[in-house]
C-alpha cells in the first residue's frame, strides 16, 4: 500500500515562488523490528529515494534512510519557470517506483 498525494497549484505566474507538497502513505519498515510471534527480523522496506522533475529537469531530490518515520512528507519552494508537468518518483526498496504527476499552467 503506497498511495501518493501531491499538491501543486494549477495556475501560477512565471517567476512566482510556490510551495509544493507531497506525502506518500508508506509503512517505512525499518528492518530493525522483530515479529513478536516468530522472533524473526522483519525485512527492511522503506522508500529510499524521492526524485521530482519538472518537464524532465530535476528540481528536487532526497535520499531517505531507516529513521524516517512512516508516511514521509516533503515540501519545498519552487520558482515557476513556465507551464509544464511536475512528476514525483518514489523508489521503494526492491526497486519498485511509484509515480504521481500534476500539471502546472503558468501565465
Amino acid at each position: 500500500m503506497a498511495k501518493p498525494r501531491i499538491k501543486v497549484p494549477k495556475m501560477a505566474k512565471v517567476g512566482e515562488i510556490v510551495e509544493i507538497k507531497s506525502m506518500i502513505s508508506h509503512k517505512m519498515e525499518s528492518g530493525r523490528r522483530k515479529d513478536k510471534k516468530t522472533g524473526k527480523v522483519i525485512p527492511r522496506k522503506i522508500i529510499n529515494a524521492l526524485k521530482v522533475t519538472f518537464n524532465g529537469k530535476l528540481v528536487f531530490s532526497a535520499s531517505l534512510h531507516p529513521s524516517v518515520s512512516a508516511n514521509p512528507y516533503f515540501a519545498f519552494d519552487f520558482k515557476v519557470p513556465g507551464s509544464g508537468d511536475m512528476v514525483f518518483e518514489w523508489t521503494e526498496d526492491g526497486g519498485k517506483v511509484i509515480t504521481a504527476k500534476k500539471s502546472l499552467k503558468a501565465a
Binding site: 498511495k3 498525494r5 499538491k7 507538497k21 506525502m23 502513505s25 508516511n71 512528507y73
Partner: peptide, 11 residues
C-alpha cells in the same frame, strides 16, 4: 494536506 490522518480518510 499535511494531516496524515487524511490518508485514512481518503481510503
Amino acid at each position: 494536506f499535511d494531516n496524515p490522518g487524511n490518508l485514512w480518510l481518503e481510503e
